[in-house]
Design a protein around this nucleic acid. Sequence first.
DNA 1: CCCATATTTCCTGCTT
DNA 2: AAAGCAGGAAATATGG
Length: 316
Amino acid sequence: MDKVEATWTGVCCLPMQIMILEGAGRMSINSSSNLLHQQPSWTDGYSTCNVSSSFYGTQWHEIHPQYWTKFQVWEWLQHLLDTNQLDANCIPFQEFDINGEHLCSMSLQEFTQAAGTAGQLLYSNLQHLKWNGQCGSDMYQSHNVIVKTEQTDPSLMVSWKEDNYLYDSGYGSTVELLDSKTFCRAQISMTTPSHQPPDSSDVKKTQDHTPKSHTKKHNPRGTHLWEFIRDILLNPEKYPGLIKWEDRSEGVFRFLKSEAVAQLWGKKKNNSSMTYEKLSRAMRYYYKREILERVDGRRLVYKFGKNARGWRENEN
DNA sequence: CCCATATTTCCTGCTT
DNA sequence: AAAGCAGGAAATATGG
């Protein structure tokens, strides 16, 4: 065994990581492949969390919208979803397969056409960006949600807010804070067909996800990856800010801290060299088995398929 | 030891 | 340019 016991306090610039994993106490980290090596950006003491897509690298917020690439347009959209705590369906990403120049030329009407009720939000936010060049800290929020006035690195600010928010209020109490959510409700219910439990052959109901069923045929290493992911989603208070639902009823979710999830998975499997790269390969194998469905276009987003059980709110 | 399943590891190519 | 995504291929771990 060349594994080295290391405590998370060694990674002193990662308060979130420490908090998340403190329950686990010590973590086995391979000295040649720990977080410090895999995620240099985590160690810069700043952009510690990839809460929203990615700030390091592309830095759309430092570029005038006019010059955004399609990718940066999507990052902006994603960011608006994040900061306004909106469901993904509030903004039809496909409608924004355009670059910054095109985006800037759109009228309010066109925005509304493309994104419905959210169009207004997008439009006014973009106007703000256009006239201010650089992004002020307050532009990240639209009119209707939590206002933050601190002058800090936006990425830090946002992750801090989201993390704290998750810690303080827990998952269940989100709604009252977020009237922006309600303004999307109509849209969501229109675009979301009602759902019947897709079960046909399997009449077995495992209300609780305790894996001790007599029908289990092969379960080599205890929990499967998808169950592990599901359980993180189902216990947000235990693993805050790692993965979040994008659309609870449809089973769409998104990794917020992909590498942290990979580390956690690796820990469970006693594999300290687990990475998101490898974890995601395993996730992709689930497509064929219909445990997951593809969600294309959006990074780090997955959707439970018909063979995934136990993730619905009231599953039978 | 063999077999199947469920990853894990590595890789090339493509997209954002 | 860095991160993700797609899959192929091969290796590995585990239980039967």
